[in-house]
Amino acid sequence: MPSETPQAEVGPTGCPHRSGPHSAKGSLEKGSPEDKEAKEPLWIRPDAPSRCTWQLGRPASESPHHHTAPAKSPKILPDILKKIGDTPMVRINKIGKKFGLKCELLAKCEFFNAGGSVKDRISLRMIEDAERDGTLKPGDTIIEPTSGNTGIGLALAAAVRGYRCIIVMPEKMSSEKVDVLRALGAEIVRTPTNARFDSPESHVGVAWRLKNEIPNSHILDQYRNASNPLAHYDTTADEILQQCDGKLDMLVASVGTGGTITGIARKLKEKCPGCRIIGVDPEGSILAEPEELNQTEQTTYEVEGIGYDFIPTVLDRTVVDKWFKSNDEEAFTFARMLIAQEGLLCGGSAGSTVAVAVKAAQELQEGQRCVVILPDSVRNYMTKFLSDRWMLQKGFLKEEDLTEKKPWWWHLRVQELGLSAPLTVLPTITCGHTIEILREKGFDQAPVVDEAGVILGMVTLGNMLSSLLAGKVQPSDQVGKVIYKQFKQIRLTDTLGRLSHILEMDHFALVV
Rank of each mutant, 00 (worst) to 15 (best):
P78V: 06
A231P: 13
L210W: 01
C272Y: 09
A60S: 11
I261G: 04
G148D: 10
D179I: 04
S227V: 01
P229A: 01
A231H: 15
R125C: 08
P273G: 09
G246L: 04
K271D: 04
L210S: 04
L156G: 01
K267C: 10
V206S: 08
P78E: 06
V180M: 08
N216C: 11
G100D: 12
D234R: 06
P2I: 10
I142K: 01
R190N: 08
N228V: 01
S175T: 15
E4M: 04
E4G: 09
H67W: 06
G263E: 01
A253R: 01
P49W: 11
T146Q: 11
E40G: 13
T193S: 01
E201R: 14
S3C: 09
V255P: 06
G246Y: 01
W43C: 12
T13W: 01
D198Y: 04
A195T: 09
A186K: 01
T141C: 14
E187V: 07
T257C: 04
P273L: 13
P46N: 03
G274L: 07
Y223A: 01
H232W: 04
H66E: 01
S3P: 09
S27D: 15
P200R: 11
E144I: 08
G26M: 10
L42T: 06
A159G: 01
D221R: 01
C15A: 05
N225L: 01
H218P: 04
I214G: 05
Q243Y: 12
C244V: 13
K75V: 13
C15F: 14
K102A: 12
P2K: 08
L220H: 01
D238Y: 08
A183R: 01
L105V: 11
I219C: 01
R18C: 05
H17V: 13
L42N: 01
E34C: 06
H67M: 04
R18D: 15
G14C: 01
P170K: 14
Y163E: 05
A237G: 11
A183C: 13
L248D: 01
P16M: 07
G96D: 08
S32I: 07
G20L: 09
T87G: 01
T68M: 01
V118R: 04
W208E: 07
K39S: 04
I219R: 03
Q222W: 01
E131M: 05
L230I: 09
E128V: 11
L77P: 04
R224L: 05
R164Q: 04
V178I: 01
R266Q: 07
Q7C: 14
P273F: 03
E187M: 01
F197Y: 01
D234W: 01
S254L: 01
S254C: 13
A231C: 15
E62H: 06
G151L: 03
G85R: 11
M173C: 14
V252D: 10
N113G: 09
I80D: 05
P64V: 01
N216R: 01
A130P: 01
P46Y: 03
A157E: 06
G162Y: 10
G139Y: 07
R182Q: 11
T235M: 10
T150W: 01
E104T: 01
R91S: 14
G20M: 15
A237F: 05
P200L: 11
A69L: 01
L77N: 09
A130G: 11
P229S: 10
N149C: 01
D245T: 06
I264T: 10
G20S: 07
G96A: 10
C15H: 10
T193M: 08
R18W: 13
G258T: 01
S174Y: 01
H67G: 06
P16T: 06
V160H: 01
P138C: 09
T236W: 01
T262S: 11
R121D: 04
R164M: 01
R121H: 01
I76V: 04
G85Y: 03
P192V: 07
G263D: 01
E213H: 01
L101P: 11
I219A: 05
C272W: 10
T262D: 03
I76S: 09
A60F: 06
P74C: 12
A69V: 15
D129T: 08
A265D: 01
L220S: 04
K75G: 13
T236R: 01
